[in-house]
Simulated scan of single mutants.
Amino acid sequence: MELTIERATKLQTKPNWSDLTFGTTFTDHMFVMDYEVGKGWYDARIMPYQDLPLSPAAVVLHYGQTVFEGLKAYKDDAEEIFLFRPDENMKRMNDSCERLCMPTFDGQFVIEAMKQLIEIEQDWVPEVDGMALYIRPVMYATEAHLGVSPSKQYRFIILLSPVGSYYAEGINPVKIAVESQFVRAVKGGTGAAKTAGNYAAALKAQEVAEKEGYSQVLWLDGREQKYIEEVGAMNVFFKIDGKIVTPELNGSILPGITRKSVLQLLRHWEMDVEERRLSIDELLEAAKNGTLEEAFGTGTAAVISPIGELFYKGEKTVINNNEIGPVAKKIYDTITGIQSGDVEDPFGWRVQVI
Score class of each variant (00 low, 15 high):
20 L>V: 11
217 V>N: 01
232 G>N: 05
123 D>L: 03
73 A>M: 12
99 R>H: 01
341 G>P: 05
319 I>Y: 08
170 G>M: 05
336 T>V: 14
231 V>Y: 00
72 K>N: 02
254 L>F: 04
330 K>W: 01
318 V>G: 10
283 L>A: 06
160 L>D: 03
27 T>C: 08
156 F>W: 03
118 I>S: 09
206 Q>Y: 14
288 K>Q: 08
182 F>E: 07
120 I>V: 08
77 D>A: 11
242 G>C: 11
129 D>T: 15
322 N>A: 12
109 F>I: 09
14 K>V: 00
47 M>F: 00
288 K>W: 02
319 I>F: 09
316 K>S: 15
173 P>G: 07
188 G>E: 11
183 V>Q: 11
307 I>C: 07
307 I>D: 03
36 E>F: 00
332 Y>D: 01
215 S>M: 13
168 A>G: 15
58 A>W: 06
310 L>N: 13
181 Q>L: 14
296 F>E: 01
172 N>T: 07
268 H>V: 01
222 G>M: 04
76 D>N: 14
74 Y>G: 04
301 A>S: 11
43 D>A: 15
45 R>W: 00
133 L>Q: 04
313 K>T: 13
3 L>W: 02
211 K>D: 12
9 T>A: 10
148 V>Q: 00
48 P>Q: 10
6 E>Q: 14
219 W>T: 04
91 K>E: 12
331 I>Q: 09
66 T>P: 00
57 A>M: 15
246 T>L: 06
346 P>G: 08
192 A>P: 00
79 E>Y: 00
348 G>R: 01
254 L>N: 00
49 Y>P: 12
34 D>F: 09
69 E>L: 10
274 E>Y: 08
58 A>Y: 06
167 Y>T: 09
268 H>E: 13
43 D>G: 13
270 E>W: 03
192 A>C: 11
131 M>S: 07
210 E>D: 09
294 E>R: 08
51 D>G: 15
9 T>E: 14
43 D>S: 14
65 Q>C: 05
188 G>H: 09
211 K>S: 14
17 W>I: 13
242 G>F: 12
117 L>R: 14
327 V>F: 05
95 D>G: 13
319 I>S: 02
141 A>V: 03
153 Q>C: 04
284 L>D: 03
218 L>M: 12
84 F>A: 06
242 G>D: 05
257 I>R: 01
187 K>Q: 11
276 R>I: 08
33 M>F: 02
169 E>Q: 15
90 M>N: 01
267 R>E: 15
324 I>P: 06
272 D>K: 06
343 V>F: 07
133 L>C: 04
5 I>R: 15
167 Y>E: 08
189 G>M: 06
293 E>K: 12
340 S>R: 12
157 I>F: 02
254 L>C: 10
82 F>P: 04
252 S>V: 09
85 R>Y: 03
182 F>Y: 15
183 V>P: 07
113 A>Y: 06
166 Y>R: 09
284 L>F: 09
36 E>G: 08
34 D>W: 03
190 T>H: 04
69 E>S: 02
353 V>R: 02
9 T>L: 10
172 N>Q: 08
270 E>F: 06
227 Y>G: 03
238 F>P: 10
138 V>S: 01
243 K>Q: 12
246 T>P: 11
139 M>Y: 00
87 D>Q: 13
29 H>K: 13
